[in-house]
Simulated assay, not measured.
Amino acid sequence: MKISPDIPDEELVELAQQSESQEEAFRLIVDRYSPMLYAVIRRVLITHDDTNDALQNTLIKVWKNLGHFEGKSKLSTWMYTIALNEARSLLRRNRPERQLPIETDTYSLAETLTSDPYFDGDEAEIRLMEAIDKLPEKQRTTFELRYFEELPYAEISEITGTSVGALKANYHHATQKLYKYLGVVEDED
């Protein structure tokens, strides 16, 4: 069975839940969402190898649980939630390795980023990533989903289980901390 790549998510999920179209539908889901999931996970885990591990675990969980997906949220929201949980789980498992401060004689986030063969950012991006990494987890997650993924607060609320008001406050505090760290002066309009 050939499935159109433009098929809406709702129909794609239905096809993924039917045995005769399951594999092709899942391949389309992977093609459609892997880049976005990779980006979200990468911002949490920083390294390409850890990100790939978490992405693979995410896709395995999606495959195993797609039959139970009821469509109460968007497919992307459900998958973002799984991806963030996988990234956080990997962070907890690797926590002893990540106990070093951001800048020491032997370690810096910028060094980790620039030594990664998949990283092609410039100095500004490195400084931004360093600043984001210093944010508390809730503020960092809110900022990344809102700023980089351009998700609406309502969807972020579903993903994180946090109220929209708290998310707006997290985003505001995160941007203020980032402005301060980066030395950016906000317009007084």
Score class of each variant (00 low, 15 high):
31 D>H: 08
61 K>D: 15
21 S>P: 06
41 I>T: 07
36 M>W: 10
64 K>G: 05
27 R>I: 10
77 T>G: 13
40 V>N: 09
26 F>D: 02
35 P>I: 08
31 D>S: 09
48 H>N: 13
62 V>S: 08
40 V>P: 03
59 L>K: 00
32 R>C: 01
40 V>K: 03
49 D>R: 01
23 E>N: 14
63 W>K: 15
50 D>C: 00
30 V>H: 04
54 A>D: 05
71 G>K: 07
19 S>E: 15
62 V>Q: 09
26 F>P: 02
22 Q>H: 09
25 A>V: 05
35 P>C: 00
79 M>W: 03
53 D>Q: 12
63 W>A: 14
78 W>D: 10
77 T>V: 00
66 L>V: 07
19 S>L: 15
43 R>T: 01
67 G>A: 12
46 I>W: 09
34 S>G: 01
56 Q>A: 15
56 Q>Y: 10
59 L>H: 05
77 T>D: 13
55 L>H: 04
60 I>N: 09
76 S>F: 14
17 Q>S: 02
55 L>D: 08
52 N>R: 15
35 P>T: 08
40 V>C: 04
32 R>M: 03
49 D>C: 01
31 D>G: 01
70 E>L: 04
64 K>M: 10
56 Q>H: 14
42 R>W: 14
63 W>P: 12
64 K>D: 14
61 K>T: 12
84 L>E: 10
30 V>Q: 11
37 L>A: 05
38 Y>F: 08
39 A>Q: 09
69 F>S: 08
75 L>I: 06
43 R>M: 00
19 S>Y: 07
20 E>V: 04
79 M>G: 03
21 S>Q: 12
72 K>Q: 14
58 T>R: 04
48 H>S: 06
25 A>N: 05
74 K>S: 12
20 E>P: 10
44 V>Q: 14
66 L>D: 05
56 Q>W: 09
37 L>S: 00
60 I>Y: 10
23 E>D: 15
54 A>E: 04
17 Q>T: 04
59 L>Y: 02
53 D>L: 00
57 N>T: 08
31 D>E: 13
16 A>G: 09
70 E>Q: 14
54 A>Y: 01
21 S>W: 04
51 T>G: 06
84 L>H: 12
81 T>H: 13
83 A>Q: 07
79 M>K: 04
19 S>W: 09
42 R>G: 08
51 T>V: 00
24 E>R: 07
45 L>C: 10
66 L>N: 09
24 E>Q: 15
51 T>H: 06
81 T>D: 13
76 S>P: 14
28 L>E: 07
34 S>A: 06
60 I>F: 12
83 A>Y: 02
42 R>C: 11
29 I>V: 08
68 H>V: 11
44 V>A: 11
84 L>Q: 14
66 L>P: 06
17 Q>R: 06
82 I>H: 10
65 N>C: 05
47 T>C: 05
84 L>I: 15
68 H>K: 14
48 H>V: 11
48 H>R: 13
29 I>H: 01
28 L>D: 07
21 S>G: 07
84 L>N: 13
84 L>K: 12
84 L>Y: 11
32 R>T: 11
84 L>S: 12
53 D>T: 13
30 V>I: 10
46 I>A: 00
35 P>Q: 03
20 E>A: 00
30 V>T: 11
16 A>H: 06
81 T>C: 12
58 T>L: 08
35 P>V: 01
51 T>S: 12
